[in-house]
């Protein structure tokens, strides 16, 4: 059997706020795997640290505990919690994508440029990248008149489609999805779900948090339920 692309082992994250002298627990003792061509969904109540797991894998958060073993395209295993910044940047460029609830993009860039960006980073010629972006945007039913303007003025649903298109376009090997359909109307959500199914069948491994249990049921191959982290006192005892 093919080893998982991602194996998270005892991941924990807490924030040390120096100013207030406070310890804020976020995720605690999370373990799961993600396999190629499969979707692993994280569920759990608010405050269980679902997003914190995604951010820890993407290294937007520095993990406090545990191992995040990632198997890269060459078959090498790497602990993302310990990888160098340059290794992480390279993986972000080539292998690991992240679609959040919010679209972070450069102001003043056209939608087409925003979506084409990851391909440009991989050295794809500008025209070719824009062509791919156009195809993807039309598959996601984003009206063509919006392509040449900045997504800054878009509605939540339009913006989220741009966000997803940018996350999908470079075909990452591992895609992290944080409530990608949360702000979409049912029709668009359906279209996004179709896209995710398509990516899965092409072999993309996904780790996702969905707003609707129904979406989880439809897309997830594995479901991991997270419990809220223990209180600070418990955590301190454990750390000590």
């Amino acid at each position: 059997m093919i080893p998982p692309i991602l194996q998270v082992d005892g991941y924990g994250k807490h924030f040390q706020l120096h100013e207030q002298n406070k310890l804020i627990p976020s995720s605690h003792n999370v373990s799961f795997t993600v396999r190629t061509g499969e979707l692993t969904a994280l569920i759990g109540p608010t405050g269980a640290g679902k997003s914190s797991v995604l951010k820890g894998i993407y290294r937007t958060y520095l993990p406090s505990a545990g191992r995040i073993l990632y198997r890269d395209v060459a078959g090498h295993e790497l602990d993302l919690a310990l990888a160098s910044e340059h290794q992480i940047l390279e993986l972000r460029r080539r292998e690991i994508g992240f679609v959040t609830q919010f679209l972070h993009c450069l102001p003043r860039q056209t939608t087409l440029d925003v979506v084409a960006q990851p391909l440009l980073g991989l050295g794809v010629p500008r025209e070719e990248a824009k062509q791919s972006a156009a195809e993807l945007l039309s598959a996601m039913k984003l009206p063509e008149r919006l392509w040449s303007v900045s997504p800054a003025t878009f509605s939540g649903g339009e913006r989220q489609r741009v966000n997803l298109a940018r996350g999908f376009i470079a075909r990452p090997r591992l895609l992290l999805l944080d409530e990608p359909t949360a702000s979409l109307d049912p029709a668009t959500a359906e279209c996004v779900i179709g896209l995710i199914e398509g990516l899965k069948s092409e072999g993309t491994a996904m780790l996702a948090i969905f707003h609707h249990p129904e979406t989880t049921r439809r897309l997830a191959d594995q479901v991991v339920e997270l419990a809220p982290p223990p209180a600070v006192e418990e955590l301190l005892k454990e750390i000590a």
């Binding site: 924030f15 120096h18 290294r59 937007t60 520095l62 910044e85």
Partner: peptide, 19 residues
């Protein structure tokens, strides 16, 4: 402090950076 830009902005480690 040194790190990835998004990490420094979202999960700063040093008291000064947090402030």
């Amino acid at each position: 402090e040194t790190g990835l830009t998004d990490q420094i902005l979202e999960d700063p480690q040093h008291a000064y950076t947090q402030r």
